[in-house]
Simulated assay, not measured.
Amino acid sequence: METGKTTRYFKYAIGEIILVVIGILIALQINNWNVNRMNTKEENTMLLALKKEISENQLLLKNEVERHTKAFNLLSELTSYISPQPKEINDVKLDSLIFAVGWLPRYSPNEGVINSLISSGKISLIKNDGLSSKISSWNSLLDEYNTTYKWTERDVFELLAYIKDKYPFRRTLKNFDIETVRNSEFKFSKEDLLSDLGFESLLANRIIDAQDVLNSSEKMYSFQKEILELIEKELEN
């Protein structure tokens, strides 16, 4: 091959290689752009579904926080009547306070979307690290709430077993919206019940755990609120 032709051949070959490389890079860039666009679209779809689920859960939890608060306040008021020489309390008032002993409000959220995100690994599509971190913490925070709920459940069983022969719990059914059931005909002594040290001790433990489950529910409410705020910011971008 002549020297001039050889030089032109190599220049042509190098040019072809450069064009191929550029073509590959452009193709990769287009592919990456398409992948990112699809991922962004899927992320938005997930965030909208997650927003809907947690918004509905937040409404449920708002009601339960109010119910936990009411139960705690009733229990605290009940313990104020217990002493070696209990002060006077009318039957209707006592029934409404004893009702709180067996009242167990519980938050049972919908978890379909959030559990799907976590189990499928699609949580990695969420670009906001703070948001994905909070979503990953969902189960641990819910487990904390459920644990405190189980403590209160245990307390209820212990208390009801303790007072079953000291107070006719049937008297509280009207507070559970069971109006058709007639009241108990068994007699009991309010003074004996409200001057009972064992009742006071078990009730004190019930109040401690009622406070814990209330705190846990409020913590969960704040947590969900933060998630919703982060989702809203992501959807606005």
Rank of each mutant, 00 (worst) to 15 (best):
E191Y: 05
R170Y: 07
A49Y: 00
F72A: 12
I231S: 03
S137M: 14
K87C: 06
A210I: 03
G23V: 14
K5N: 12
L94P: 02
F99R: 04
L142M: 11
W151M: 14
Q224L: 10
I126R: 04
S137T: 08
T152A: 13
D129F: 11
E236G: 11
Y162N: 03
I24L: 15
S195C: 05
Y221R: 13
K122L: 03
E111K: 07
R206P: 02
M1V: 07
E42C: 00
A161W: 01
N139H: 06
S195G: 05
I118M: 02
Y221A: 08
N205C: 09
E56G: 04
F169G: 06
T152M: 11
K93Y: 11
Y221W: 09
D155V: 02
Y167E: 10
V65D: 04
S189I: 08
L214V: 01
T40I: 01
N34W: 12
G112Q: 09
A204K: 13
I227L: 12
R106P: 00
L48P: 00
Y81P: 11
N215M: 09
L203S: 09
I178E: 15
K150W: 03
F176A: 13
L60W: 03
N90H: 11
E53M: 03
L59M: 05
L159P: 00
Y9Q: 07
V92R: 09
K166Y: 03
F72E: 10
S55M: 10
S132N: 13
S132P: 02
N73I: 09
L131N: 10
R154Q: 12
N32Q: 15
I114Y: 01
K52I: 06
G198M: 06
K187W: 02
T148E: 15
E234I: 04
S140T: 15
S216E: 13
I208D: 14
I163N: 03
S216G: 07
L117A: 01
T172W: 01
Q211F: 07
P84C: 02
V156Y: 00
Y162R: 00
R206Y: 06
K41P: 00
K233N: 13
R171E: 12
L47G: 00
D143V: 07
M220D: 08
Q85P: 00
L141C: 05
R171A: 09
V92M: 10
K11H: 05
E200H: 02
S140K: 13
Q224P: 02
L193E: 07
G198C: 03
S116N: 07
T152V: 14
W138H: 10
